[in-house]
Write a protein that binds this DNA or RNA. Structure first.
Lengths: 341, 341
DNA sequence: TTGTACGCGTTATCAA
DNA sequence: TTGATAACGCGTACAA
């Protein structure tokens, strides 16, 4: 096969090296692996032979023996979306520093495709699996598998599994605390799809802080979709029902962009009259907004790193079932600040 | 190792299956691989035994035998950027339909890190390598490697390598042709970093069409950075020097957003007075612009698919050196249209 | 139709 | 200090 010019024959093996160095494969192996059971001079000879042949050990053969592949499988459901990429980066980061490789698959939200990929990965004897969801709601467990599994972003429904998620309640809390510190007291909430648990969690966080401060929510939270259009429409509703509103908490940056536009067109100043907050800290949106958008950063890279670390520990036998909740952080920008009458 | 509850012992092997079915490993192998040298009844017995044990063949062992790993290495330099993701999706797509797996590494624009990852991947005996660049300029070749290599998005400097790139000249052409069809004749260009070859290629495409139409470029192309801020500043320059400009071709959507803002604040209507085009078709920017931004889509997923196909062919012995140029397409939206005086 | 034996490239054990 | 040998899990001639 492949008689093509630039891509020639089979890579050199350890026996090639041994032969060239005039030793047995066993001695060659020891020399290259730093075992101190070989004469220094012999080792030199083997090493230079290896370099001469540009030898690199066949990891497959090594793994076959050890039973471990030194690779993990990463199944994502949202490769084109923006949530899985930072998570994936964090995982790759954590893995790359060690010696483990990452096998990437995109299941695109399809359970069948996921099942297929999981089987393929198990066939490759990955040491562990990381499943990255597309939306933050709990998902069915893959059930018991021969290797450890960590669910990232979207947790498993089974609490015996290992999951890593973003702290949505905290996301609501930090926003509410910030707004109160800014002196706001008539705070409305506009958020997305009510079928998202995360939407409710964020609202719960806001409500807890406001109730604690004796302020309360202005009106009921408005659920809709994660779009700019809904942001605009909802803002019109809020202004009609509560003309004295002085802050709008949004469930996403996308929604917040729509809210900002509608407020401007209604003659409200941001943040002088009404403060606005987003969620996700999607910089392309947040930094192109006028004014720049205060938002909540979910620390997704950290989430990915934690998931990877959890997985590596589990591979080493230290299983920590349960859901690890990664704190988020507020990123204050121009869309919030003190009131100006 | 790993005495933890949920993640038990070594996966079943072919001999386990054979023993349970009461046959030899050879017969078991033939049965499961569809060789027609076994009695149907025996095959049934083996298959049910395999299912009972939840057996999945050890791909590592199989590969060790065949010499091929059935995996390709994907080294990206721009995981957080938006250009490599679609390319990566296309590649994953092409690979997933077959039986090959993708090993993902992020080199983050660092040549040393790239070298490290390439060595690690070669150690895993990947059948081929795909290198995805962060910017479209030619990059140094990795030189002769024991497996085929395809460079995607950023081509190799060595024409003997296989590369797949976006057609930037065509990108300029389609935009210019569209603007001329819209009746524009005083067309200026605002683009990004002059060290990007792609910036010059796109200008060359615009210039070729305008010259051919006897229209010519209005002023010299303005090179700067790929930012909104530069878009605004450059627009101020253009309006000062050529108040009668009726179209501005931008080197990126980001720049175009700045151009649109500055035009609006200068009292020009888009597209009635001035038409504006972008490049990249980054929908988050293009569809949030007012009006929606006409842009050039580089078909990056197609680029990734082609790169993968090229790589698979090379692995099968069909090497096609040279640079494959993927056509782009115009996506007309509200920011262009006929003039209105 | 089935089973035996060998090899893929490596590491570990044990004897020399 | 070195080398022969046995695994690891699988596919495949070849022999039965």
């Amino acid at each position: 096969m492949a008689t093509a010019s630039g891509t020639p024959r089979r890579p050199p093996t350890l026996s090639d090296v041994a032969r060239l160095a005039g030793v047995s494969v066993a001695t060659a192996s020891k020399s290259l692996n730093g075992r101190h059971q070989v004469k220094a001079e012999t080792r030199e000879r083997v090493i230079s032979a290896a370099e001469q042949l540009n030898f690199s050990p066949n990891v497959l053969a090594r793994n076959l023996l050890s039973g471990r592949s030194g690779a993990i499988g990463l199944v994502t459901h949202d490769l084109e979306g923006r949530f899985s990429i930072p998570t994936l980066m964090g995982a790759e980061d954590a893995a790359g520093t060690g010696k483990v490789s990452v096998l990437l698959c995109d299941a695109r939200g399809d359970a069948l495709r996921e099942q297929y990929h999981v089987q393929a990965l198990l066939g490759r004897r990955v040491d562990g699996l990381m499943i990255v969801g597309a939306r933050p709601d709990p998902r069915p467990s893959l059930g018991p598998l021969p290797v450890p599994v960590v669910y990232a972003y979207a947790p498993s429904e089974d609490p015996a599994d290992m999951s890593v998620v973003s702290d949505n309640v905290l996301g609501g809390r930090v926003v509410a605390e910030h707004l109160i510190a800014c002196g706001r007291s008539r705070i409305a909430v506009v958020t997305g799809d009510a079928t998202y648990g995360a939407a409710h969690d964020r609202v719960a966080g806001v409500r807890a802080v406001l109730d604690g401060a004796g302020v309360g929510l202005t009106g009921e939270p408005l659920y809709g979709s994660w779009s700019e259009e809904w942001g605009r429409a909802a803002t019109a509703l809020v202004l009609a029902q509560h003309p004295d509103v002085d802050a709008i908490v949004c469930g996403s940056d996308q929604i917040a962009r729509g809210v900002l536009d509608q407020l401007r067109e209604s003659g409200r100043r941001v943040p002088e009259d009404v403060a606005v907050t987003g969620h996700d800290n999607w910089e392309i949106l947040a930094l192109n907004a006028r004014p720049h958008l205060t938002s909540v950063d979910m620390n997704l890279e950290e989430l990915g790193r934690r998931a990877a670390a959890l997985l590596f520990d589990a591979i080493d036998g230290q299983v920590r079932p349960g859901t690890d909740v990664v704190p988020c952080r507020l990123v204050p920008r121009g869309s919030t600040g003190p009131r100006v009458d």
